[in-house]
């Protein structure tokens, strides 16, 4: 049950019930769509990037507590960041939820996602928004699927 408490921390439940930056950007300079066919989760990530800086970022879609909170926390962590900072945070989050690596960047709030580590079946939920972000930054047009990696 302690592992469950690590997974469903207050911050996660709060971001699930009241997702931040839950909107579509119009116009968006970057956009990608992500899908987890196993559970039906869908996410769209919308970005406004000027001079290599993420001026605005929002998301839309529907999903479980973990995928929704992860997307919400991601948008908070990345607003105002440079692209190279965003890539670094992506790498750190991925390492954190799949291995025992600690987070070192200033985006410390993302630490709450570390609880997912204990639930291998839920890692895809936590990473869906992040892989979709990566696709958006790379102008990938094909929707991201958790089942293609």
């Amino acid at each position: 049950m302690n592992e469950l408490r690590d997974l469903y921390q207050q911050v996660i439940l709060d971001h699930y019930k009241q997702p931040r930056n839950f909107y579509r950007l119009k116009p968006a300079t970057h956009h990608a769509k992500g899908h987890n066919p196993l559970c039906g989760d869908e996410v769209d990530i919308w970005l406004d990037i000027q001079d290599n800086i993420i001026r605005d970022i929002g998301f839309t879609g529907q999903g479980c507590a973990i995928s929704t909170a992860s997307a919400s926390l991601m948008t908070e962590a990345l607003r105002g960041k440079t692209l190279s900072e965003a890539h670094q945070i992506f790498d750190e989050v991925r390492a954190m939820v799949t291995t025992d690596t600690q987070l070192t960047s200033p985006a410390g709030k993302l630490m709450v996602l570390a609880g997912v580590r204990q639930f291998p079946a839920r890692v895809k939920c936590a990473m869906l928004a992040w892989h979709t972000l990566n696709a958006a930054l790379n102008h990938q047009t094909k929707p991201v699927s958790t089942e293609q990696t």
Partner: peptide, 30 residues
Amino acid sequence: DGVHPHDIGTILDGEGIAIRTGHHCAMPIM
């Protein structure tokens, strides 16, 4: 209401209860 089936499945699993969550290979029904 307000809870995704995946989260129901994970919490029940924590209590030793195995159920299925997902689209059950029947997406048109969903």
